[in-house]
């Protein structure tokens, strides 16, 4: 009788359970009504089953978002785990949609589900991609804008994983500053 090794039938568990959300901009509805939970997963295999099944970000209509957050954290500033948090923000030029957008987003997802930031991965709440005509954005959200060690470690690893050249500066902004900004840009807490 053949004995199957466990590797052939046991899925690979992730450290966290994750929830993928989709936002579609419909101006007749409230912001919250436009936000839908797609699915949750907690294994490597189920992550790919979901990823392979949905549209690439570059195919989404302008105004749409994907968000991947740890189970129990809603992808909004108001959630208790986000209220004092902030984000490492990657802004992309229009030309980068073709060259970099899908690659950057997949790399972001792999950083999250693979726990790429070592012990500081605990500070990660999730990640968001905004598809916008004026320029797409990708961000990793963390839970506390005062956790300098965690934020700088996450930023360094993330920038390296994306292959962003050292001379390009990326910024970390608190959600509180983003929510209350008066102009078009938010001041960086860290770079």
């Amino acid at each position: 009788q053949k004995v199957m090794s466990p590797e052939t039938y046991i899925k690979h568990p992730l450290q966290n359970k994750w929830a993928l959300w989709f936002f579609k901009n419909d101006k007749s509805k409230t912001w919250q009504a436009n936000l839908r939970l797609i699915s949750k997963f907690d294994t490597v295999e189920d992550f790919w089953a979901l990823y392979n099944h949905i549209q690439l970000s570059s195919n989404l209509m302008s105004g749409c978002d994907y968000s991947l957050f740890k189970d129990g954290i809603e992808p909004m500033w108001e959630d208790g785990r986000n209220r004092r948090g902030g984000r490492w923000l990657i802004t992309l030029s229009k030309q980068q949609r073709r060259a970099d957008l899908d690659r950057f987003w997949l790399e972001t997802l792999l950083c999250l589900v693979g726990e790429a930031f070592d012990d500081h991965s605990d500070d990660v709440c999730g990640a968001v991609i905004n598809v916008r005509a004026k320029g797409d954005k990708i961000a990793i959200w963390t839970t506390d804008y005062e956790n300098k060690d965690a934020i700088t470690h996450i930023g360094r690893v993330y920038k390296e994983r994306l292959g962003v050249p050292p001379k390009v500066i990326i910024g970390y902004q608190s959600h509180a500053d983003t929510a209350t900004k008066s102009g078009s840009s938010t001041k960086n807490k860290f770079v």
């Binding site: 039938y9 899925k11 690979h12 568990p13 992730l14 450290q15 294994t43 490597v44 295999e45 189920d46 992550f47 790919w48 089953a49 990823y51 392979n52 790399e107 792999l110 589900v113 693979g114 726990e115 790429a116 070592d118 012990d119 991965s121 994983r161």
Partner: peptide
């Protein structure tokens, strides 16, 4: 211990069926 997976390991599973 934290369950960490590097990118090559994760990418190796992209086209393995998860229909179990």
């Amino acid at each position: 211990k934290k369950k960490q997976y590097d990118r090559e390991f994760l990418l190796g599973f992209q086209f393995i069926s998860a229909s179990m």
